[in-house]
């Protein structure tokens, strides 16, 4: 992995009320990198699902625990067209990464879809234990086509999705 920009790192408390802030930030940066509206929405969904899992399973719905989200644009290279890396870390109880699995979709019932959605949306998904306490999830998404390669510009502003523009 090569980095073109320094990563952005934010800390949130584990209150579901603030999921929207993380989603907006990730979506906005993904737009800036060059992903289209639909891909930005899906990347934000993956982040939302990951944070929900931390809150629900890791912290057992406690709303005052820390979650760190680190966002790094991935540069274009011979092997890829660039993309985004998102790392989500917590101080929740540690579990074996191999135990983190999505359920079978044939079993139609509420819940248990988060890991499946994350793996479906992102190109690379790695769960691991942090060195001392908590878990780390590293996710990468690459742009699909050459024309969707990152277009990072220090002058461009974050585009507002069409449905949220005010005329």
């Amino acid at each position: 992995m090569s980095e073109t920009n320094p990563p952005i790192k934010i800390e949130l408390v584990s209150d579901p009320m603030y999921l929207c802030g993380a989603r907006e930030l990730v979506s906005c940066i993904a737009h800036r990198i060059g992903f289209d509206d639909m891909e930005c929405s899906k990347i934000a969904l993956a982040v939302d699902e990951a944070m929900c899992n931390v809150i629900r399973h890791g912290y057992e719905r406690a709303t005052d625990k820390p979650i760190w989200v680190t966002i790094t644009p991935l540069s274009e290279s011979d092997e890829s067209f660039g993309g985004i890396e998102i790392v989500i870390e917590d101080e929740a109880k540690q579990i074996e990464p191999t135990a983190i699995k999505g359920r079978e979709l044939e079993d139609i019932r509420p819940g248990g879809l988060g890991v499946h959605i994350i793996r479906e949306v992102m190109d690379s998904v790695v769960f691991e234990k942090r060195e001392t306490v908590g878990m780390r999830l590293t996710m990468q998404k690459r742009a699909d086509r050459p024309e969707e390669a990152p277009r990072i510009s220090s002058r461009s502003s974050c585009p507002i999705p069409a449905e949220r523009r005010v005329s």
């Binding site: 999921l19 699902e49 929900c52 019932r109 509420p110 999705p161």
Partner: peptide, 14 residues
């Protein structure tokens, strides 16, 4: 609704 996550999906399955 501009956005829904799997908790919303689970609600609708229920």
């Amino acid at each position: 609704v501009q956005y829904m996550d799997s908790s919303g999906l689970a609600t609708l399955v229920e």
